Amino acid sequence: MALSFAIAATVGAEPAEVSSYLADVRGEFVKKWPENRTVYLVCHGHSVPAGYFETPEVRPFDSYPHLLNVALQERHPTAMIEVVRTAIGGENSEQGVKRFAADVLAKKPDVITIDYALNDRRIGLQRARVAWESMIRQAKEQGVKVILVTPSPDQRSDFNDPKDPLALHAAQVRELAAIHEVGLADSFAAFQQAVAAGTPLADLMSHVNHPNRKGHELIAGEIAPWFGVEPPLEFEAGTNSP
């Protein structure tokens, strides 16, 4: 019943508008010293934003929070931009919401990304919804902008089955973005499009459920337009191997 009501409530609803949602943040990017200030983006979630590749190897400089930081700084060389990871490998959204106030909001961020759907399959859609909505509401109460991130792939899942649990969680993240009128970075769709265009999924992954650098570039490319930076993003040559 609750799920049916939520789906009905999204009829006609849309996520925030890419061109205007972070207008204030974009305005800070163009300010120069001494009028500028540090803009803080916090990436909250599980092992993917934490930078895990082939477990237990951690490669933060090849992960999407860092790649996003690089892309934004290159576009705005006079801006002060700090991207902070509060992600913990293995965590789900119920665990993430418990430390949201102390670990995320306490940093006084301008923007928060939330990326938990890959691990939320363990707790199911309803419990995940409660946790995600709590984080969204807490952020909005503090005047903090939010970008929800749909899951990156798990090679054990049926990527093309809309009833696969991972696809269902991706759909729920899209729904929450529409209901709460916050930002949406649709990583799941970006990976689907890359595969449909001929890129083998394995070429985007370092582990069964962790993207490699190419995969992280896809995710960064979904977040960057909210800050006025359109893909393809320009990065220095780096390792793209698993």
Rank of each mutant, 00 (worst) to 15 (best):
M1P: 11
A2G: 13
S4N: 08
T10K: 08
G12S: 07
E14P: 04
E17C: 11
V18N: 10
S19P: 03
S19I: 05
L22S: 03
L22R: 00
A23R: 14
D24H: 12
V25A: 02
V30F: 02
K32A: 14
W33F: 13
W33D: 11
E35V: 07
N36K: 14
V39M: 04
Y40T: 15
Y40N: 11
G45Q: 04
V48L: 04
V48Y: 05
P49Q: 01
G51S: 10
F53L: 13
F53H: 10
V58W: 09
R59C: 04
R59K: 13
P60T: 11
F61G: 00
Y64W: 12
Y64K: 00
P65F: 13
A71C: 04
L72T: 10
Q73G: 05
E74V: 12
E74G: 02
E74C: 08
P77A: 08
P77L: 08
T78M: 08
M80A: 15
M80F: 13
V83Q: 00
I88L: 07
G90D: 06
E91A: 13
N92H: 15
V97Q: 02
V97K: 05
K98N: 12
V104C: 13
K108W: 07
K108C: 09
V111I: 09
I114P: 05
I114E: 05
A117I: 06
L118G: 06
N119W: 03
R121K: 09
L125P: 01
Q126S: 12
Q126D: 15
R127Y: 06
A128W: 04
R129G: 04
R129E: 11
R129I: 03
E133T: 11
E133P: 06
S134G: 09
M135T: 00
I136W: 01
R137V: 12
A139H: 04
A139G: 07
E141H: 06
I147F: 02
L148I: 10
V149Y: 08
P151T: 01
S152T: 15
S152L: 02
P153V: 00
D154Y: 03
Q155M: 15
S157C: 12
D158G: 00
D161G: 09
L166D: 01
Q172R: 14
R174G: 02
E175D: 09
E175T: 15
H180C: 09
E181F: 02
V182E: 01
G183L: 00
L184K: 06
A185M: 07
A185R: 06
A185G: 09
D186S: 02
S187W: 13
A189L: 14
V195K: 03
T199S: 10
L204R: 07
S206W: 02
H207C: 03
H207Y: 13
V208R: 10
N209R: 07
H210P: 09
H210D: 09
R213Y: 06
R213T: 15
G215S: 00
E217W: 04
A220T: 03
I223V: 15
P225Q: 05
P232V: 03
L233I: 10
L233N: 05
F235W: 14
E236L: 05
E236G: 14
E236F: 11
A237F: 06
N240W: 07
N240I: 07
S241D: 14
S241R: 14
